[in-house]
Write a protein that binds this DNA or RNA. Structure first.
Lengths: 188, 188
DNA sequence: TGTACATCAGTGAACGCGCGTTCACTGATGTAC
DNA sequence: TGTACATCAGTGAACGCGCGTTCACTGATGTAC
């Protein structure tokens, strides 16, 4: 049956949002169209009233995840006295390590995005935006250019969260986050 | 028909080696049992004469990839005058970015390993070994503990290669590698 | 040393399953008069 | 304002496909005598 246009648009957004979380948590290939529809309380057949294909949803969900990541970035820089420390404490925290669904899309999706050529633009834009903003907002040392330091920080943040999630030993996992945090906070 | 025991053992090793490369290049879930067998010049039915299940092959292939990664680490530290610089130049190179099949298993498999609890031990051991060896072999600055610096280096190396593979813009990709390299080489 | 037999790696057809996608159908919404 | 009709989001069965896995069978190898 037909539904109000507004309700349809809301459902469309809800599907993208759900997928953005599920893809981060379990990987893009591991999440089926049916599972996303089920999570939204619908049957799989309605999927193609909202998207042309799974690939279409994937692109939209990746862009949505990047948008959410960008917003989270902004809110964690809220401390005007030391935005860099606040940002690093938030990003390199055990909470962020364990909240994959709502966490930064880079440590959750970067490898899969690297393999599928289509959706690299959204991640490239996200990295550029993060680096530019870090250069402008944070205090940096005199060792090398600000931009080099911001790129090192980005690489280390992403790598540390990925490794902290992938190692077996909880104490090593926490050490990876803490050591990376200490080193990056100190370099200012 | 029956085959010489030696030949069988060779084939077994060859399957693990092929899988270790294919999993890194295309992801574990994306590589089928049939594809691995085909790459070895055999039919899929023989697979279960060598492994109990796909999961069994996955575990063996991850361990093999880590072993190969450890050997590559050793050989890239060959320059006795500046092993750290030689190591970083090798790891954070465009060649390493593009040679995924033969490259470090961490930037290729870390996220997938993070999702499947079973095979985290091999990656944890690999990180520990790399950090321990870096602490012992490289020259470090006085800013923070050697171990903290070695962990930052590891995080940044893994993150930089993953991001360099995942962004769309080739110049940004090269910049991520170069900037991370410059910052890590300088910190000694 | 020669013969008879058990072993088992490899083949290729077949299994059930879940995937992405399609389709005939439903029925409330939105539109035309 | 009321009536008639077109629209289209959603349902659930069905499609072909490739997956991991199983199985009856083959035949050279390895073993027992």
């Amino acid at each position: 049956m037909r539904y109000p246009a507004e309700e349809t648009a809301e459902k469309h957004e809800r599907l993208i949002n759900l997928a953005a979380g599920m893809f981060r948590e379990r990987g893009i290939d591991a999440v089926s169209v049916s599972e996303v529809m089920k999570a939204a309380g619908m049957t799989h057949g309605a999927f193609y009233s909202h998207f042309e294909s799974k690939d279409d949803l994937v692109s939209a969900a990746i862009r949505e995840a990047m948008k959410q990541g960008n917003e989270a970035l902004t809110s964690s820089m809220s401390d005007p006295a030391s935005p860099k420390t606040a940002f690093l404490n938030s990003y390199l925290s055990i909470m962020h390590r364990d909240m994959i669904k709502e966490g930064c899309p880079m440590p959750a999706l970067a490898i899969e995005i690297g393999r599928r050529c289509k959706d690299k633009t959204a991640l490239g834009d996200h990295v550029r935006r993060l680096v530019d903003r870090a250069v402008a907002s944070f205090r940096w040392s005199t060792r090398g250019s600000k931009r080099d330091q911001a790129i090192l920080m980005t690489s280390a943040m992403v790598g540390a969260v990925i490794l902290a999630r992938a190692v077996d030993d909880p104490s090593l996992s926490e050490e990876i986050l803490a050591a990376t945090r200490r080193q990056l906070v100190a370099s200012q």
